[in-house]
């Protein structure tokens, strides 16, 4: 067993884990933060994207022990004081989701994208940046719209 201590959504948490525990397993199984989803085994779908020290990463492709000491933000930690994050609001406003399974990963990816590339995002950039997030329902069109709108609202 290995012990890990990290900050998740502003709270310090510690756990003893089998070293092969993935960050996503720590979040879902130990901390019951089930908003971060697993949709594939091959690091392609992006349903598990969270922020580790401000960087969007696939929590299914990171061992929990690798995140020791890190600051982690998950979809549950995005809304502050009961107020939706502008990107969450934009997804609802623009019908950027259907079944909702890919949505947490999409939103976490989108927020970091805005942090990196600013508030004015064109369609091409958004589509390129969504390379690592798969959605089976929407056909992406409204997701792209939502991210463009959310980016502006994050100003």
């Amino acid at each position: 067993m290995a012990s890990v201590t990290l900050t998740v959504n502003g709270r310090t948490v510690s756990a003893d884990v089998d070293p092969r525990t993935l960050l996503v397993q720590l979040l879902r199984e130990h901390l019951h933060l089930t908003g971060t989803h697993v949709g594939c085994d091959t690091s392609q779908c992006g349903a598990c994207v969270v922020h580790v020290n401000g960087r969007a990463v696939k929590s299914c492709t990171l061992l929990a022990v690798q995140a020791d000491g890190a600051k982690v933000v998950t979809i549950e930690g995005l809304a502050a004081n009961g107020k939706l994050h502008p990107m969450q609001e934009a997804f609802r406003e623009n019908h950027g989701l259907q079944c909702g399974f890919c949505t947490p990963g999409m939103i976490m990816t989108a927020v970091e994208l805005v942090n990196r590339k600013g508030n004015n995002l064109d369609e091409h950039t958004i589509r390129e940046e969504l390379e690592g997030n798969l959605c089976r329902c929407t056909g992406y069109h409204n997701i792209v719209k939502a991210i463009a709108a959310g980016a502006k609202a994050m100003r």
């Binding site: 969007a56 990463v57 696939k58 990171l62 390379e131």
Partner: peptide, 9 residues
């Protein structure tokens, strides 16, 4: 390379 999350890690 890969996608943004892969490039971050």
């Amino acid at each position: 390379i890969g996608d943004p999350a892969v490039r971050n890690q």
